[in-house]
């Protein structure tokens, strides 16, 4: 099963400039872990030290938020995962 992750601006310097990645998994958590396996330096900007999704990271599947299920949310073949930083600034 193939899922695409859209890599947000904040992570691209940690993915050698790649803007998308192909990952595998049946949940958002599986897919993100597969992604981190490909680009280990992204881990600090996705998960806290206990392995939980950072509190300011929101994950969308096909532009629909997965909150509050988040990493437990299911994904299907062909889905697109987007990562948004829900930080406020200014």
């Amino acid at each position: 099963m193939s899922v695409q992750i859209d890599i947000p601006p904040l992570l691209r310097h940690l993915t050698d400039g790649a803007t998308t990645a192909k990952v595998k998994g049946s949940t958002v958590g599986d897919c993100l872990n597969h992604f981190v396996g490909q680009y280990p330096r992204t881990k600090k900007l996705l998960f806290d030290k206990d392995g939980k999704l950072l509190r300011y990271v929101e994950v969308y599947v096909n532009k629909v938020t997965t909150y509050p299920e988040e990493t437990a949310a299911p994904v299907n073949d062909g889905d697109e995962i987007s990562i948004v930083y829900v930080i406020a600034g200014g």
Partner: peptide, 15 residues
Amino acid sequence: NKAFQHHREMGTTGN
């Protein structure tokens, strides 16, 4: 909404 929850917790200091 997760953005709201985070904003309530941290304001804009997290940016």
